[in-house]
Design a protein around this nucleic acid. Structure first.
Lengths: 326, 326
DNA sequence: CGGACGATTTACAACGTTGCATTCCCGGTA
DNA sequence: TACCGGGAATGCAACGTTGTAAATCGTCCG
């Protein structure tokens, strides 16, 4: 592999002059510049990023920490972060936590200060104290009750959940269940609160189903239990589209009609939901906006130093489809 | 950030002795070892991977190049590669190509020899010549007609496609369409060949629908066209599960029953297919096996040098669900 | 007691790059 | 002619780590 030294030898100039050309330094005699450029091409020179970053104190990569790429929402988000990062000449290094506190702590620890310039992390189960030893710039995805001096990007989960439940109320549904409660997950708590509040505004309450994971399997099991209960719901609000997909399947298995007997609302706007039968009404966050905002915030924090912690609220909308209005 | 020098000063030994302790060198006096270890803890030392890799000539990361994380198959595969790579202490840096030749060439170029130790790439549209300038160890996912001295991992696409179509023939279907032909994509060609051959064995032919992308939208459009044609098929074999999802939706929109009027088979075994209504019969590749094999091959190639190009054939199975046997 | 030998530690250089300070060269000016 | 200023090029050091070879130490053997 060609180094600056090789190029310099070929062009008959010093290493530093080659470096200057590579870095676009203005004061290089046109003649030398030309010779260097030819030598660069001839040798196929590529800067050794390791060395450059060692010198510059940057790594040129950013970490993206998500629970699982198998979850469409995070896969899609990861793709968008990749795209946003490329605009900043950042490479992206992805880590999966499986949504466990242990996995998230590992990820934070592994992100030694020298392996990435910063991280975008979507924590599910972390406690405030877990961030104690963290060094580099960090941007959190999603709202969190953690009172940390960190940047946040995310939608208003309480309001989004209220929107979803109000939609069901507007359709005349009165027994509206929630699927997706989880003891350790911050977003679950917020969506649950939105559900409870919207119902309370109408003088109602509704059953709540907890899940272990946010997978289709869990949604199906929860829905089955609800439908088999003495007072089955006439609508369910699922905390993500995977749970909703499972719920729809469980309803179909029991011959329960959607939306006739039960209306279903999801959360995340996975593309799959638009193509299912019935298609899924869902809360659609602005994923591209989230990705862009997260990367932009991280860039600013990596560049400048003394910024106050910021929160970016990204918009969402309710996408109404067949699972609520057949 | 603490460096070896800081630790050495604190422990009262030379930098190299600290390095030796960090790297588990055997001959360090117990007393010194203890002092160094205490100093390591006290300073919170983390090796500077940039510097270490510069010295060792390794980067500690591997690149995974896929068309798009929004496609569930690649998202799932990426997750599995992440997991497999962690077992080798590799970080994974993901690049999206959007399935275009340009994107794939860019990815190859960006993978300078110094940014990753090697790459696992899932090429769709690359020509053999595009690999000319490529330096580092490379493992290709999927079969390719390219006659390159590179490692390959993948299933036998022709045989998988034959299996899918034979299944439809066994069910008595006689007009079996294929959805997913594409001029530039190697895997499309192979699945198409399997389709054609299986039909030929039964003395039949079937319509073929080309698509621009492998997305649900394209599957829906292709299916709509087939169903509206003068001789609609009684079965379709889709080259991936997204196309199949679109096809199912198009059928539902037209009141065409699946599998009553048309049977549908997909490819990839996305988890979504198991939960749809109807659930989707599909070819299920051993994704975890593919991920593991790819990373293992890459590891061997990074370690040793003079290996012949290898091909690993991973198994697949036909997963029969409601879309073919209601 | 001298030397040999292995255990242990260390100094030094190098990986490839870039910031800094220096040097060199030129025309223009006093 | 001596000096000045800025363009242009360069040498040197350093980023943090580790391989190599050499230095140091102690102990065992003859």
């Amino acid at each position: 592999m060609a180094t600056l030294k090789d190029v310099a030898a070929l062009a008959g100039v010093s290493v530093k002059t080659v470096s200057n050309v590579v870095n676009g330094y203005a004061f290089v005699k046109p003649d030398n510049r030309r010779r260097v450029e030819e030598a660069l091409v001839a040798t196929g020179y590529r800067p050794n990023l390791g060395a450059r970053n060692l010198r510059r104190g940057r790594t040129g990569s950013l970490a993206l920490v998500v629970p699982e790429l198998g979850i469409p929402y995070f896969a899609e988000l990861a793709g968008l972060v990749l795209r946003a990062a490329r605009a900043h000449d950042w490479n992206v290094l992805i880590q999966q936590t499986l949504g466990t506190r242990e996995g998230e702590r590992e990820a934070l620890a592994a992100l030694g200060p020298h392996v990435v310039d910063g991280a975008v992390i979507s924590p599910e189960a972390l406690r405030g104290t877990d961030f104690a030893g963290v060094s580099g710039p960090l941007v959190l995805l999603g709202e969190h009750p953690l009172d940390l001096p960190l940047d946040h990007v995310g939608i208003d989960n309480v309001e989004a959940a209220r929107t979803a439940v109000r939609h069901l109320l507007d359709l005349g549904r009165r027994r509206i269940a929630a699927i997706g409660a989880h003891p350790d997950r911050a977003t679950a708590a917020q969506r649950l609160r939105g559900h409870r509040e919207a119902l309370a505004d109408a003088g109602l309450t509704g059953p709540v189903a907890s899940v272990e994971h946010y997978h289709r399997r869990d949604g199906a099991a929860a829905m089955a239990a609800l439908l088999d209960s003495p007072e089955p719901p006439d609508a369910v609000f699922c905390f993500n589209d995977l749970l909703a997909a499972g719920a729809l399947r469980a309803a179909a298995d029991r011959g329960v009609r959607v939306p006739g007997d039960v209306a279903v609302v999801g959360f995340d706007d996975d593309e799959a939901g638009a193509y299912g039968s019935p298609s899924l009404t869902t809360i659609a966050p602005d994923k591209a906006g989230i990705a862009r905002a997260a990367v932009d915030l991280l860039r600013e924090r990596v560049d400048g130093r003394d910024l106050p912690p910021r929160r970016v609220r990204t918009p969402f909308r309710l996408r109404i489809r067949e699972s609520t209005v057949g």
